[in-house]
Amino acid sequence: MTEQSQKQHQDCRMVEAILFASESPLSVEEMTERLPEGVDVVAHLATLQEIYALRGVNLVLVAGKYMFRTAEDLSFLLRREIDEPRKLSRAAVETLAIIAYHQPVTRAEIEDIRGVTISKGTLDVLMEAEWVRIMGRRKTPGRPATYGTTQEFLVHFGIETIKDLPGLHELKAAGLLDSVDIALDKLGGMPQPADHEEQDDGQIDIEEAIARSERDAIEGANKKDLVDTADEPAV
């Protein structure tokens, strides 16, 4: 082994050691600061990803940072050791989903999408889990706080960026949006993709559309009951 190849091997071992010992994911910049000058961190990360691709642990990129994680097909072996006793209520799960897909979003906007008010405790639970944070304040009367997801949310769910969340078609394929077709019919079908800058303003609010279709169904049923009552002979 030449002197150059020995140095490359040693540099790769140092990158591996730093990642192995770290309790949290590390960015390229953070690793560069800890290593001697001249170490090609990016190249060694690519090498390590290839080496660990078929092993029991993989080198993965989450939230723009690198970490070792148990291979997905072997995660069941450690489930007993790594599962956390953290159970979320249905309200918390729905609130987390709304924040993830609509961030930055205010409390009032969350309630408008869900159709019911949320208790302060629901947001507190999500913030204590470090999955949700206050992102700032909306420039509207009252300056309401806006909420968004955190890096811990991405790491916990193994997502590199928010853009990797499942889209509409994936959710439909999984059977999680059973009434979405009815809801879209109410709004005239699927919208055409807008420009990147206008995409957020032009998108259909699926939850609101579904809620609207359900309200229409209830109103229709109530009207039918009134008609049936009116047709009954007087006693």
Rank of each mutant, 00 (worst) to 15 (best):
T122H: 06
G158I: 02
T146W: 07
R137H: 07
I110F: 05
T149K: 03
I118F: 11
R90Y: 06
M190L: 15
A173N: 10
E152S: 11
G121W: 13
H169R: 13
K172V: 15
G115F: 01
K172P: 09
R143W: 05
V93L: 08
T146H: 08
H102T: 05
V105P: 10
K120C: 03
H169W: 10
S179V: 05
D164N: 04
H169T: 10
Q151L: 04
Y147H: 13
L88A: 13
D112H: 11
A145I: 05
Q192L: 09
G175W: 07
D181T: 15
A108D: 09
L154N: 11
E170K: 10
G136K: 03
L187C: 14
L168M: 11
L126K: 03
T117V: 00
A145E: 13
P144K: 08
T150G: 02
R86A: 14
H156K: 14
V132D: 08
S75R: 15
P141L: 02
L171C: 07
L154T: 07
E152Y: 06
K87Q: 10
I182M: 11
D178V: 14
I82S: 05
L96W: 03
L176P: 00
R80Q: 05
T150M: 06
I98Q: 01
M127T: 01
K87G: 00
G189M: 07
V125T: 08
E170A: 15
S89A: 12
V180D: 08
I113A: 13
E130G: 00
W131A: 00
P144F: 08
K139S: 09
L165E: 07
D164Y: 04
A92S: 15
L165K: 02
A97F: 12
W131G: 02
A129I: 04
K186R: 15
A173D: 15
E130Q: 08
I182E: 15
D83E: 06
V125M: 09
L78H: 00
R80F: 01
S179Q: 14
G121M: 11
L165A: 08
V93E: 11
P144E: 02
I134L: 07
L171N: 10
E128K: 15
E109P: 03
I162L: 11
G136P: 01
P191S: 09
A91Y: 03
L184P: 12
L177T: 09
D124V: 06
I113E: 06
I110K: 14
T161F: 00
I182Y: 13
M190Q: 12
A100H: 10
I82H: 01
L171P: 04
W131I: 06
L176C: 05
D112R: 14
D164L: 01
F157I: 01
I182K: 14
P166D: 14
T95W: 10
G188R: 13
P141M: 03
D124S: 12
G121K: 07
G158Y: 06
L187N: 03
